[in-house]
């Protein structure tokens, strides 16, 4: 049982116009076995949160903490975070020239486990996981993400999720750019990883579509770098109907609650 705890996180980036604050005090606790959905409009800072957890150097944490079972995640380098059990499925997976998938997967697995996987079982595992995600076998010979379609890149992210078995998976818009069939295939992958019982999931999405296949325990609505509303799966259904319009930029949770009360009166 592990806990990933984010407390009052403030994050800014350096732009040509100066420093820009993107996350304005985010708090979130995820435990093994839980699935949290973070939903929010474009530009609200969802990817910033994901990248900050993973340790992308562009994002500066100005205050707040991230801990994994009490360990200071912010003090860890990017690779240390991954080895500690964090996994970020990226919104835009990067193409890496010159490195074959086979080589990449084996090197990463070795780094994460601290020892090389047994060759025979590993090859078998990779093959099986690829087949389940409907990824062609010849992808292992191709360079990491190079020339993959958007949907193929997302599947390959989930392939890694299944093979690396992290403690916490952060899925940044894994659903975007997928057709319905691919969405199902990818969701099944996430659910399989989840079913092993050792993983907590932070599912970032703009749309509710993926929540039909991956059931969240908690839903957090993210607007302008803050969580403005939290609830159970029913909140997602509401967002599906009403969209984000009622969360005017800058509106805090309290304002929303008041507006809701007024609407119901």
């Amino acid at each position: 049982m592990s806990t990933l705890e984010i407390k009052d996180l403030h994050v800014s980036i350096d732009t040509e116009q100066g420093t820009k604050e993107i996350l304005k005090g985010v708090s979130l606790t995820i435990r093994t076995g839980e699935t949290h959905a973070i939903m929010g409009p474009n530009g609200s800072g969802k990817s910033t949160l994901a990248s900050t957890i993973a340790g992308h150097p562009r994002y500066n944490v100005t205050s707040g903490t991230i801990t994994l079972d009490g360990e200071d995640v912010l003090a860890m380098s990017v690779d240390e975070r991954a080895r500690a059990g964090m996994f970020l499925a990226m919104q835009y997976p990067v193409e890496v020239p010159g490195v074959s998938m086979t080589n990449f997967l084996r090197t990463a697995k070795t780094a994460i486990d601290g020892e090389a996987p047994k060759l025979r079982t590993w090859t078998k595992d990779v093959k099986a996981a690829m087949a389940q995600l409907r990824i062609d076998a010849d992808f292992t010979q191709r360079n990491v993400n190079e020339g993959f379609s958007g949907g193929e890149k997302k599947r390959v992210e989930i392939l890694q999720l299944e093979l690396f078995k992290p403690k916490f998976a952060i899925l940044d818009e894994t659903d975007s750019g997928l057709d319905v069939d691919a969405l199902k295939v990818v969701s099944e992958g996430v659910n399989r990883a989840h079913a092993e019982g050792n993983m907590g999931t932070l599912l970032i999405t703009h749309y509710t579509r993926i929540l039909r296949y991956i059931k969240p325990d908690f839903v957090h609505v993210f607007v302008d770098g803050q969580v403005v509303e939290e609830g159970g799966p029913e909140l997602a259904d509401r967002l599906e109907e009403e969209g984000y319009d009622r969360y005017a930029t800058g509106a805090g949770a309290a304002t929303i609650a008041a507006a809701d009360a007024a609407a119901q009166a």
């Binding site: 990017v78 690779d79 975070r81 020239p97």
Partner: peptide
Amino acid sequence: QHLFYLMARGIPEEV
């Protein structure tokens, strides 16, 4: 970006 991607999979920078 390449470096970040590989490191985000646990691979140390030099490797």
